[in-house]
Structures are given as structure tokens and as C-alpha cells.
């Protein structure tokens, strides 16, 4: 009985819309205001055309690279806040680090435009100290910078939660057994925080896969991503809701599979005692 409200919400907010998208996706070339035509897989087959595969490939590339960047940058920061910083400063540091989240991601992307543009902050700085300037804006590198910056706080938050729970005595135990700091890190810290690492990566991966503000604003002429392609199908001139739905289903599937993998393998870690 207690599950009824939760179940109802789930049905209303998650299952029903997904089923609707599924239904749309099974009518090739469906457009709004039209009667549903025959069922078919045409929308899904369309995805396999090289230009669309290229778009999906770029989205994956952006998502995977920004996830790795966030992990590489986020782990030391989270480790420092959770393990090394004085206890009473931890909350303050954490708040400071996630403060950018209080601003709109659009605003943050505009800030990066200001920094990266040809006559922007970065290049002014570089030329002041006599270094060659960089043409970063309207390139893939700008998208990676923007995505990583946008999602780094999420990664840090999740890794912090995981590292903060890390039993420090296990680190001492490993050192006691002869492990040097690197060995302690790879043999204890990383395995112990693996669920947090997986959760953080998954969150960053999913959100950057679906993000289109950053590629749109920072990516320049060649920045079409799956999210923007879907947007174009729904609200662009073509209004091919069928194809847009099949692309959406693909994203939903990718996200569901990764979450399922996380639940399955993330759960294998034995409980703490």
C-alpha cells in the first residue's frame, strides 16, 4: 500500500511518457497533427545512416571525454576535501566548490566564451606573458572544457560523499601492511570508492550526453550532437517527431543500460561492517 503513491508518480512521470515516445518512434516519419500511420521500424533504421551515426559518435565522444576529465580533475579535489582538509573547513570548501552550480549553466557557458574567445581573457593573458595565443572557441576543445567545467561539481560532490565515508583505518591498515601511498591508493582507496566513482561517471556521462547548451554555444560550426538533433526533429523545421522519438529511445536505452549495469555490479560490493 505504501508503494502506491510512489508507483503512481513513477507511472505518471516516467513510464507513461516513455511509452508515448516509444509509440511515436514506431510510426515512421510521424509529424504532429497527423494521424498515426502504420507501425514500422523506419525511424530506427534511419539512425544507422552515416550522418546520424556520426552525430551520435560525436555525442559519445563529448560525453566520454568530459566524464574522464571530470574524474581525473574531480578525484584529487574530492580526496583533498574529504581526507586531507581540516574537518571544520570541509563543508565550506565543498560549498565553495559547488557554488558555480547555483548559477545557470548557460551563464557559465557564456563565461567560457568570454574567456576563450580570440580576444578574450585567456588570450589576453597569454599574449601579456609572451606566449602564443590559442584558438579554442568554436572548437571541440571548447566543448570539452565547457562540459567538464559544468559537470565537475557533480563529480566532486559524489566522489566526496564516497571518500568521506571511506574508512580511514583501512588506509592505515594497508600502510601498516607495507603498502606505500600509491599502493594504498590503488589497492584500497580506489576499490573502496568504486561505487562512488561509477555513480559520478554515470551522472556526468548521462548529463553531458543530453546537454546541448554547451556544444551549441562553444562548439562552433561542427557541434551537432544527438540532443540537438532530437531538438531539431521536435521543434525545428522538419518536425519529424517519429525520428526524434527513435533517437530519444536510443538515449533512454543507453542511459537505462548504464544504470542497470551500475545497480548490478555496484551492488556486488559487500556491505560495510
Amino acid at each position: 500500500m505504501l508503494l502506491v503513491p510512489a508507483g503512481a508518480w513513477l507511472l505518471l512521470l516516467l513510464v507513461a511518457p516513455s511509452l508515448m515516445i516509444l509509440e511515436f518512434s514506431l510510426h515512421p516519419g510521424l509529424r504532429p497533427g497527423q494521424a498515426f500511420g502504420a507501425y514500422g521500424l523506419g525511424n530506427y533504421l534511419q539512425i544507422f545512416q552515416p550522418i546520424y551515426l556520426q552525430v551520435i559518435g560525436r555525442s559519445l565522444y563529448f560525453a566520454i571525454s568530459s566524464t574522464l576529465t571530470c574524474l581525473l580533475l574531480g578525484f584529487p579535489v574530492a580526496y583533498w576535501i574529504a581526507v586531507m582538509a581540516p574537518k571544520r573547513w570541509q563543508n565550506l570548501l565543498l560549498v565553495g566548490f559547488v557554488l558555480p552550480l547555483w548559477t545557470s549553466s548557460l551563464l557559465r557557458s557564456y563565461a567560457w566564451i568570454t574567456i576563450l574567445r580570440p580576444t578574450g581573457v585567456l588570450n589576453t593573458l597569454l599574449s601579456t606573458i609572451g606566449l602564443p595565443t590559442l584558438d579554442l572557441l568554436n572548437q571541440q576543445s571548447a566543448v570539452l572544457i565547457g562540459l567538464s567545467y559544468n559537470f565537475l561539481p557533480y563529480m566532486v560532490l559524489i566522489l566526496y560523499a564516497s571518500l568521506e565515508k571511506l574508512d580511514k583505518r583501512l588506509l592505515e591498515a594497508a600502510a601498516d601492511l607495507g603498502a606505500n601511498p600509491q599502493q594504498v591508493f590503488w589497492k584500497v582507496t580506489v576499490p573502496q570508492t568504486l561505487p562512488g566513482i561509477a555513480a559520478g561517471c554515470l551522472l556526468v556521462f548521462i548529463t553531458s550526453l543530453g546537454d546541448f547548451v554547451v556544444p551549441e554555444l562553444l562548439g562552433g560550426a561542427s557541434s551537432m550532437t544527438a540532443a540537438r538533433l532530437i531538438y531539431n526533429q521536435f521543434l525545428g523545421a522538419t518536425r519529424n517527431w517519429g525520428f526524434g522519438s527513435s533517437l530519444s529511445m536510443l538515449l533512454i536505452l543507453a542511459v537505462s543500460v548504464s544504470i542497470a549495469l551500475l545497480i548490478k555490479y555496484g551492488d556486488q560490493e559487500p556491505e560495510r561492517y
Binding site: G29, R31, I51, Y52, Q54, V55, R58, A221, S222, S223, M224, R228, L229, N232, G236, A237, T238, R239, N240
Partner: peptide, 18 residues
């Protein structure tokens, strides 16, 4: 027409992703 609109859109996607 729809067909022409899709043609435009495909070229657009190609242009924006190449």
C-alpha cells in the same frame, strides 16, 4: 513539402556535424 523539408534537414545535419 515534408520530403523536401527532410532533405533540407539531412543536409543541415550533415553540415553541422562534419
Amino acid at each position: 513539402s515534408q520530403e523536401i523539408s527532410e532533405l533540407y534537414d539531412r543536409y543541415w545535419t550533415e553540415l553541422r556535424s562534419a
